[in-house]
Design a protein around this nucleic acid. Structure first.
Length: 567
DNA sequence: TTGGGAGTTGTTCAA
DNA sequence: GTTGAACAACTCCCA
């Protein structure tokens, strides 16, 4: 009996192993949303390294309703198209490919799971709580659970996961950069970035002609149930031709740019101070130009962190720049901003990015003047420096950070007294590097609605650039009608005598607008309005027991209605 | 509890 | 060209 059992053992073991293997043939799907890269992508790596994986499908669903696409310009959509093409090419080099679907992920994905027999799903988590992504993910994950699919999400959009920052902060999330830096110091070493997967499990249809990445922005779907003209500016056929982005999309170009601007320039990196970089460069960017890649996740934040560290270590300069102005500081700002978005949305879901319910936003009684807003976004404020920045945004999808400061200040507390929410939506649609967390943070900051409160420090649309670019080369590039004006008048063309205007071929008021407001008058008046708004807020806070209250109903300011300049 | 110091990136003017 | 003070006075942090 015993002998008989011993003889049977190998056979039993074989059957057991075979059944076990048969029981768990893994078909994994990696769902790309952002994080459009192969390197340092823990979710992708997990999909590839899954035990018993027989097939693996890398998928991207083009979703017209997503934060990235809903309001976007053709220029911005084009960047995404380039990212997807690059991702597909890189996957093909490793024996896989990208499957691109189109439509509502909650409808498209379940069909694909069924068709392909998917058993495991991986993705990069959206920790900021961006409203559309949140509801989409909740629904998709619920559907996946119902289908018996094993789900794994990974937080890799920031240097450390946002939940970890919040945990380590012990209930009180830092809301100043200084305190965030202190928290970052307590987080331990930054984990080393992982390399790309070396090999991919097979996927069906590598050579098939279905589900290929789009070739041009016009191939992209429109948002569902929303009239086109309401959501996407500049989407005529003409707008989609001859695009002039300041950078092109894709992980390959991202890593090339990282090498060119960070890895190969140790002294530049070691001495980098953001406020000292030029915002009027007309030939080569004074900053790294990596932000569009960061917003789509073409470069991992940890890859960036170590590239900066290693490059700086190779520099021989004795005095190196430090956060918050250094390049490491820029990476920290990014995490800090994401943490703030995460925290605001934790308290009131979806409140970040707007005034209503946003715990970090002070209510300010902004005006709502469509004409003022239109002049700002259509580059016709009559202030050449402001209009030139807005023109660069329109043409290239990018402005230097200080240029963004100038135009954001001008629209809100500086001159036009329009709500920052409108400006934020406009930036979201035009910027190649639009990022939910960063965009919200910077608009709060510049409008003095949150994080920055020194409203008496106000950018002048004239003086600020005069000192950096006394010849006005930047203005001449983006506002060609002013090209021939003497430097003396380039920042204030309305002050040029009639014969000077005539000689330069531009008549102010006919060929280029007169200033929409008088900066000296408006900025002073607006400072008083800010003071009133702050006083009202303080009073309310007292009544609420000094608790940080969400910005709901703006206090009515007694200030008189803005009058347009008659000059 | 309170007061001093710091806060990524303001402007203007005088010396 | 550079530097520093005045402008009028914000919030948050920390001792």
């Amino acid at each position: 009996m015993l002998l008989g059992f011993t003889n049977l053992l190998p056979a039993v073991l074989f059957v057991f192993l075979a059944v076990d293997k048969m029981k768990k043939p893994v078909v994994s799907m990696h769902w790309f949303r952002k994080g459009l890269r192969l390197h340092d992508n823990p979710a992708l790596l997990a999909a590839v390294q899954q035990e018993n994986v027989t097939k693996m499908y890398p998928v991207f669903i083009i979703d017209g309703d997503s934060y990235q696409l809903k309001h976007c310009t053709a220029l911005r959509a084009n960047f995404m198209v380039e990212c997807l093409q690059d991702l597909d090419q890189n996957l093909r080099k490793l024996g896989s490919r990208l499957y691109v679907g189109s439509g509502d992920p909650t409808e498209v994905l379940p069909k694909l799971w069924k068709e392909w027999g998917v058993t495991h799903l991986t993705f990069e988590e959206d920790e900021t709580g961006e409203p559309y992504a949140k509801q989409r993910d909740e629904q998709v994950l619920e559907q996946a659970k119902e289908c018996g699919i094993e789900i794994k999400g990974f937080a890799s959009e920031t240097i450390h996961p946002l939940k970890k920052y919040a945990e380590n902060a012990g209930g009180s999330v830092p809301n100043t950069m200084g305190s965030f830096q202190a928290l970052f110091g307590k987080m331990g070493n930054v984990p080393k970035p992982m390399g790309p997967p070396k090999k991919f499990p097979p996927a069906d249809g590598v050579d098939s002609k279905t589900m290929l990445p789009p070739k041009r922005p016009t191939d992209l779907p429109w948002p569902r149930n929303i009239p086109r003209e309401e959501v996407r500016p500049l989407w005529g056929a003409k707008d989609c031709e001859n695009l002039t982005p300041i950078v092109r999309g894709g992980e390959a170009l991202a890593l090339k740019q990282l090498k060119k601007t960070v890895e190969d320039r140790p002294n530049y990196v070691a001495t980098f101070e953001k406020p000292k970089t030029s915002c009027v460069a007309t030939k080569q960017m004074s900053t790294t130009g990596l932000s569009p890649y960061m917003s789509w996740g073409c470069i991992s934040p940890r890859q960036l962190w170590y590239a900066i560290t290693e490059s700086s270590n190779r520099s021989s300069v004795s005095s190196k720049s430090k956060p918050p102005v250094s390049l490491h500081g820029q990476a920290l700002w990014r995490d800090f901003n994401h943490l703030m978005a995460h925290d605001a949305n934790k308290e009131v879901p979806g409140s970040w990015g707007g005034i209503e319910g946003n715990k970090y936003c002070r209510p300010v009684p902004w005006d709502d003047d469509p004409e003022m807003f239109a002049a700002w976004k259509e580059c016709r404020t009559g202030y050449p420096w402001i209009d030139a920045c807005m023109k660069q945004l329109q043409q290239e999808g990018w402005i230097h950070h200080l240029g963004r400061h100038a135009v954001a200040c001008f629209l809100t507390r500086g001159d036009l007294w329009q709500s920052w929410e409108k400006g934020a939506v406009h930036f979201e649609s035009h910027l190649l590097d639009a990022d939910y967390a960063l965009n919200g943070f910077n608009w709060l900051w510049l409008s003095c609605s949150g994080f920055f409160y020194q409203y008496f420090r106000c950018y002048s649309p004239i003086a600020f650039q005069k000192k950096n670019d006394p010849t006005g080369a930047y203005i001449r590039k983006y506002i060609p009608e002013l090209r021939a004006l003497p430097a003396k008048y380039i920042y204030e063309p309305w002050t040029a005598p009639a014969n000077v205007q005539s000689n330069a071929g531009v008549i102010i008021g006919r060929d280029y607008p007169k200033p929409i407001v008088d900066h000296a008058t408006e900025s002073k008046e607006n400072m008083n309005k800010m003071k009133t708004a702050y006083d009202v807020y303080k009073e309310r806070q007292k009544q609420n027991g000094n608790k940080r209250s969400a910005g709901t109903e703006p206090a009515k300011s007694p200030a008189k209605k803005k009058q347009k300049s008659q000059r």
